[in-house]
C-alpha cells in the first residue's frame, strides 16, 4: 500500500475527507515553497500537490498563472520539482502540464520522482489516447496516475479515464479554470456520484474550493478536497515569509476542521 493509499485509509477511519493542498514549486522561491508546504502540513493538510510551473497553463486562472510566472522568472527549472518533493514531509504528488514532462523525458521523469519518494502525478492536459508511454513508465515505477475529469465528461469516457487512474480521480468541481469561487456548483456532487458508479478509486474534488464552508460541503460526498489558489493568494498578499506561512497554516487548520464529517 502506498503512502497516499494509507492516508485515504486513515481519513476514512477518522470519518473525514482527505485534505489536499496545492502549491507551485519555486513560488515565490524554492526555499519559500518548501516552507509554505511545511506550514500547510502543520495546519492539517494530509497530502501535498506540488505544481510544476509552466509558461502556458491553460487550465489555470489568474492566481496560479501569476504564481507560475513568478516561479519561472525566479529561475525555476524542472529538476527543482524533485527537491521540493524530497523536502515535503507528507505524501506528495506532482501536478504538471504534459510538455515539461515530455521534454524532461517521460521515463526519466517517472524514475526521478520515484527516487525522491513522490507518490504520483496529476496530468491536467494529458488525454488517455496520448498516454501510452506515460502509463508504461508510471506502471514500471509504481507511481499513481491521476487524470482530471469534468462535469462535461460523458459516462462512457468516465469509465475509460477512471480505469487508467490510480490513487484517486481528480473531479473538477465546475467547467472552468482554477481559482476561488464563491459557490461550488451542484455539478460537483453529481459528477462524483457518476464516477462512483463506474470506479472504486477514491474521488477528490478541486477547482474553486477556498473556504471551510465549501470544504465541509464537499467532504459530505467526496473522498478528498483539493485547495490551491486560496493558499497562493494568501502568499501573494503577505509582506513576509513568516506572515505568509502563518496565514497558510491558519487556512489549513480551518479546512482540516471542515473536512471532518
Amino acid at each position: 500500500m502506498s503512502q497516499l493509499e494509507k492516508s485515504f485509509e486513515l481519513a476514512r477511519a477518522e470519518n473525514r475527507a482527505l485534505l489536499i493542498g496545492y502549491l507551485p514549486a519555486g513560488f515565490p522561491t524554492l526555499e519559500r515553497s518548501i516552507s509554505a508546504i511545511k506550514a500547510m502540513i502543520e495546519g492539517g493538510v494530509d497530502v501535498i500537490e506540488v505544481g510544476l510551473p509552466y509558461s502556458d497553463p491553460v487550465m489555470d486562472g489568474p492566481v496560479i498563472q501569476q504564481a507560475s510566472e513568478t516561479a519561472l522568472t525566479n529561475g525555476f527549472k524542472t529538476g527543482n520539482v524533485f527537491e521540493v518533493v524530497a523536502a515535503s514531509p507528507a505524501p506528495t504528488l506532482v501536478m504538471s502540464y504534459w510538455n515539461p514532462i515530455e521534454r524532461f523525458g517521460v521515463a526519466a521523469f517517472a524514475h526521478e520522482l520515484k527516487k525522491v519518494g513522490g507518490e504520483g502525478v496529476i496530468t491536467p492536459d494529458l488525454t488517455i489516447e496520448e498516454s501510452e508511454s506515460w502509463i508504461s513508465s508510471t506502471d514500471k515505477e509504481r507511481l499513481h496516475r491521476v487524470y482530471v475529469v469534468a462535469p462535461s465528461t460523458t459516462d462512457n469516457r468516465l469509465t475509460e479515464v477512471s480505469a487508467r487512474c490510480s490513487g484517486f480521480i481528480y473531479a473538477a468541481s465546475l467547467m472552468g479554470v482554477t481559482g476561488a469561487r464563491t459557490d461550488i456548483s451542484s455539478a460537483a456532487q453529481s459528477l462524483v456520484e457518476r464516477i462512483k458508479k463506474v470506479s472504486k478509486t477514491p474521488v477528490c474534488v478541486g477547482l474553486g474550493v477556498s473556504t471551510g464552508a465549501q470544504a465541509r460541503e464537499i467532504a459530505k460526498y467526496a473522498d478528498g478536497v483539493i485547495v490551491g489558489s486560496a493558499f497562493i493568494k494568501l502568499i501573494l498578499e503577505s509582506n513576509s515569509e513568516s506572515e505568509a506561512n502563518l496565514k497558510v497554516k491558519s487556512l489549513a487548520t480551518e479546512l482540516a476542521a471542515a473536512v471532518r464529517r
Binding site: N99, L126, E129, Y147, S152, T153, T154, R157, V161
Partner: peptide, 21 residues
C-alpha cells in the same frame, strides 16, 4: 482516426473539452 499526422497532432487538452472536440 484521432487526428495524428505521423507522430504529430493528436489531442493534449483538459477532459472538459473532449466532449466539445
Amino acid at each position: 482516426l484521432i487526428g495524428h499526422f505521423g507522430r504529430f497532432g493528436g489531442r493534449f487538452v483538459p477532459e472538459a473539452l473532449i466532449g466539445a472536440l
